[in-house]
Amino acid sequence: MCTIFTLGKNMNNVLLALGVGIHIRRQLFIVSDSNETVQQISLSADTVRKNMYPSILKPTVISVDWLNDRVYILSRNRIFGCPLARDDCIVVVDSLPVPPGDLKVDPVNGFLYFTQDGEGKGLYRIDLADISPKRRVQPTQIVTINHLKAFMIDFETVRLYFPNHTRNTMLSSFVDGSDIQDIRPNVIMPNYKHIISLTGYDNRFYWTNGSEMMSEEFDPRFEKYRHNELLFFDKYYRGLNMYHPRMQPTPVPHAAPMNLQALFEPTEAHIKWDPPPLLQYQGE
């Protein structure tokens, strides 16, 4: 099933989507457009909330924290964090050397990731617990790879996936940037160059260079991957997302809570506990 939404028109009779974030549980699309506004499109109510963050100038890439109902938005060399319900945004990261090409939040493990394009740059992250309206956060570079513009997070494998433009292949690392592996060494005529947006599902990637939409499939006869162009008869693509519940999971504890206490009254119970310890790769 394919659903098409029209954002509207501007003075040039064309309104383009620059970034797309999704909130699967609430059935929302958050879209930045070429009118320099952010719109919220509700699938359940069939409504559009226009210009929901007027305080942000030139919004582009968008990522949604579905667990805490927050939206992270790229605006030139800044990253903003905003509540889903109102225009009360704060600057999370300021004065970046170049505008990030991609931005994704991982509320399950507690990090915000973004890319920086250029020599010696790559993939960066910040701990969500460090975000505060009183201070700017200093990002940590976790992967050094030239000309990186796109990546994706797999919450089931706890890994990151990103293209290597120079080697024309797809790489994978742990969520902290360690254990980098080439996961697509056997591809017939690979086409992993100039990727600006990337998503995937069930061990299959989908990506775009801005003018073409590509996917891959495994050929068991030759034990190699093949690339296919997806023909949507358009020449402008941005903000790829996979609309599937597995892409925005609800986390479950990896260990039992500690110091469980319960006080029972005739009609209710008061329960108190200490949360289980964080895993080594999780943020604060």
Results as ranks from 00 to 15, higher is better:
Gly81Trp: 04
Val98Tyr: 05
Val187Ala: 05
Tyr72Cys: 13
Ile183Pro: 02
Ser173Ala: 15
Ile271Leu: 15
Glu212Phe: 12
Arg184Ala: 07
Tyr206Ile: 09
Asn68Gln: 13
His270Gly: 04
Gln282Pro: 03
Asp234Arg: 14
Pro220Thr: 01
Glu268Lys: 08
Ile79Arg: 10
Val187Tyr: 07
Pro107Thr: 06
Leu278His: 11
Met1Trp: 01
Arg226Asn: 10
Asp234Cys: 14
Thr140Arg: 13
Glu265Lys: 14
Leu112Trp: 00
Phe5Lys: 14
Glu212Leu: 15
Pro190Met: 11
Ile188Phe: 04
Arg25Leu: 04
Thr267Phe: 03
Lys121Leu: 11
Asp130His: 03
Val93Trp: 01
Arg70Glu: 15
Arg238Leu: 04
Phe29Ser: 14
Thr60Ala: 12
Tyr113Lys: 02
Asp234Tyr: 09
Pro220Gln: 07
Glu284Trp: 05
Ile73Gln: 09
Glu156Lys: 15
Val61Cys: 14
Gly81Asn: 01
Gln280Thr: 07
Val91Pro: 06
Ser42Trp: 04
Ser95Thr: 15
Thr250Pro: 02
Leu231Tyr: 03
Ser34Cys: 07
Glu229Ser: 12
Ile196Leu: 01
Val93Ala: 06
Met52Arg: 13
Pro54Ile: 02
Pro257His: 05
Leu96Tyr: 02
Met242Gln: 06
Pro99Asn: 05
Leu103Asp: 09
Phe232Pro: 05
